[in-house]
């Protein structure tokens, strides 16, 4: 698939899965043309439920469908999918351990135009806090395809965060995807650079720009929960310092995860992410990412800074 848009990749994959598994159903809160659940609706109208602009009801209805043996995928913008129906996901889906799949679309700052109310800076933190919830943030469209396929069989609830805008393809098509596994994208020996979602691209660019100066190991972390401490320690082994990069609040996101997982490793850790603040409107995505310091240049700066203090 040469598809670079994660949303389209998501929608096409859901259709593909729907052909293989009749128990898969989709619920939408009137954003189907954005989340691309519209593709599923077109092919399986009887298994698609348009719930109107009522996310809470959508999440609880999905819980009921799961209790009736279905595998429901629910859709909205990430800020609503994780926020508006947090209680429903916690109380019935989470406690019940139900196989509801939550698609948080237009995640992070990717809905650049709509501003703070429509941008999710804390969805990973919210979803990770629910016991038993799997949380995935793919780096590009290829990984989105692989992740959505892997989500189907998870025994319990799962959340996936999808970027609204095209991302350069950096992962291989049809590469095996294992829930919970961090992937070394480029080897290096000085700094372990952990990144998730759109920041993986920027991490790779930073590592390339630093070649000959600092040897940077780039680690893609598409699964933010469950996280295996040993695996996280293993992929950072040998590096003197650590940097994390995410399009999410530093509270409860990848930076928090890496800090906890490597807490006994005594390596300096630097963070690139959103500093306890909301998003805002912009004319384009790149401009907004720059405003919040989510750029290749900022990653390079942080790697240099950590490299300097790392013994």
């Amino acid at each position: 698939m040469s598809e670079t848009n994660c949303r389209t990749a998501y929608g096409k994959t859901l259709v593909e899965l729907g052909r293989e598994n009749k128990n898969i159903v989709a619920l939408e809160a009137d954003l189907g043309k954005s989340t691309m659940s519209s593709l599923f609706e077109a092919e399986f109208p009887e298994r698609h439920f348009e719930m109107g602009i009522a996310e809470a009801n959508m999440a609880s209805t999905a819980a009921g469908l799961a209790l009736a043996g279905k595998i429901p995928f629910i859709h909205s913008f990430a800020v609503f999918a994780a926020g508006r129906d947090y209680d429903q996901l916690r109380q019935t889906v989470g406690i019940g351990g139900l196989k509801v799949r939550v698609c948080g679309s237009s995640a992070g700052l990717s809905d650049f135009s709509d501003g703070s109310t429509h941008q999710s800076v804390e969805d990973i933190a919210l979803m990770r806090a629910i016991p038993g919830m799997t949380v995935i943030c793919p780096a590009d469209a290829n990984e989105t395809v692989a992740a959505v396929k892997a989500m189907v069989d998870i025994d319990g609830p799962a959340y996936i965060r999808i970027c609204r805008n095209p991302i350069e393809l950096i992962t291989e098509e049809n590469k095996p995807f294992e829930i919970g596994k961090p992937y070394i994208m480029k080897d290096g020996s000085d700094i372990a650079l952990f990144a998730t979602g759109i920041m993986v691209t920027k991490a790779l660019e930073a590592a390339k720009a630093l070649e000959g100066e600092i040897s940077v190991r780039v680690i893609n972390v598409p699964t933010l929960k469950p996280i295996n401490r040993n695996l996280m320690i293993e992929v950072a082994k040998g590096c003197r310092g650590v940097v994390t990069a995410e399009e999410h609040s530093l509270i409860g996101g990848l930076g928090s995860i890496v800090s906890v997982m490597l807490s006994e490793e005594c390596k300096p850790i630097g963070f690139v992410g959103i500093h306890d603040q909301y998003g805002c409107s912009a004319h384009n995505y790149e401009e907004l990412l720059e405003y919040y310091g989510l750029t290749t240049e900022k990653v390079i700066e942080k790697v240099r800074e950590i490299n300097k203090i790392a013994k």
């Binding site: 009801n57 999440a59 209805t61 819980a63 009921g64 429901p72 109380q91 019940g96």
Partner: peptide
């Protein structure tokens, strides 16, 4: 639901049972 067989859903966060019941009814119809 996970502890006691015969319970159909975790309920009690008020206002949600009707929606859950609707989901089950849609699943039964499918």
């Amino acid at each position: 639901v996970k502890k006691l067989p015969g319970i159909e859903a975790n309920t009690g966060s008020l206002g949600q049972g009707l929606s859950i019941a609707l989901g089950i009814s849609l699943g039964l119809k499918l």
